[in-house]
Amino acid sequence: MKVWFNYAFKLTFSEEVSHHAFCLRIVPQNNSIQQVNSWQLHINEKRDFSQSIDGFGNKLIFGAIQNPHKVFDVRILGEATLEAYMYKDNESPLMYLYPSTLIPFSPQIYTYLNTLILPSDPFAIAIFLNQTIYNNFQYLQGISTPTCDTDAFLSRRQGVCQDFSHLLIALLRLNAIPARYVNGFIDGQGETHAWVEAFIDGYWRGLDPTNGTLLYLSPYIKVAHGRDFFDARLNRGIFAGGGKQSIGVSVTVTKDEQ
C-alpha cells in the first residue's frame, strides 16, 4: 500500500524568540513493514538542520535558529510503502515489560486489572484489552496534559490517544506482553496520533485503543516509538523570550489510488 503523508507544525509567538534550539522526531521510521521512499522537510522554509538517530531507531532532526523570529514553521511531506502490521526488528522486546515514568505499576492499576476477566491466549488478551479500553473510556480533549500518567487516566476516565495508549501498554505489560508506545501520522484527526505495538508470538502487532481497532492494512505511518510518551515525544525546543505561544498542527495521509 502506497501512502502520501503531509505534516505541518507551526508555533507562533506573541513576542520574538531567539537562541531557539530544537530537536524533532518527525521523519517516519524505516522498518520491515514501512519503507519511506522519499521525504522533504522545511523549517521556516529552509533546509537548515542536522540529522541524528536515537537508541530506539527514531530519526532526529535538530538544529538552532539564533536570530529573533516569531514563527517556527515545520513542514514535512513524503511517500511511503506499507505492508501488513506484523513484523520483527532488532530491539529486545524484554525492554518493554516494565513500568516507566508515565506508566507506573500502582495499586490503582492492579485494582483495575483485577476487575477484568481475561482470556488465556496472549493475542486474545491483547484484543480484549484493546476493546475494553475503547468501550469504557471516553475520548475527550482538554482534560489531560502530556505529563499525566495512567493513574490519572484511570481516575478521570477521559483523555486523549496518549492516555488510551498508556493504559493499554500498562495492562499488556502486567500480563507479560511486551508493549511499546508509538507516535505517528494518520488521516482525519488533524494532529499526530498515538497507538500501541504489542509483541505477540514473535511479532510486533499494531493496536489502536482510541479507536478500538487491530491494525493490519491500515494507513498508519509510524514516526517514533519508546517505552512511553517521553521516549517518543515529537517536538522539543528551548528558546529565550516568547510571550504567549500558539500551536497549529495539520496532518494528512492519503492512500495512493490503485
Binding site: D54, G55, F56, S92, L94, M95, L97, Y98, P99, G226, R227, D231
Partner: peptide, 14 residues
C-alpha cells in the same frame, strides 16, 4: 534483564 530494564538509570535512547 529485569534489573537492567527496570532501572531508571538505563537509557535506551542511547
Amino acid at each position: 534483564s529485569e534489573f537492567v530494564f527496570s532501572s531508571k538509570a538505563f537509557l535506551p535512547a542511547f
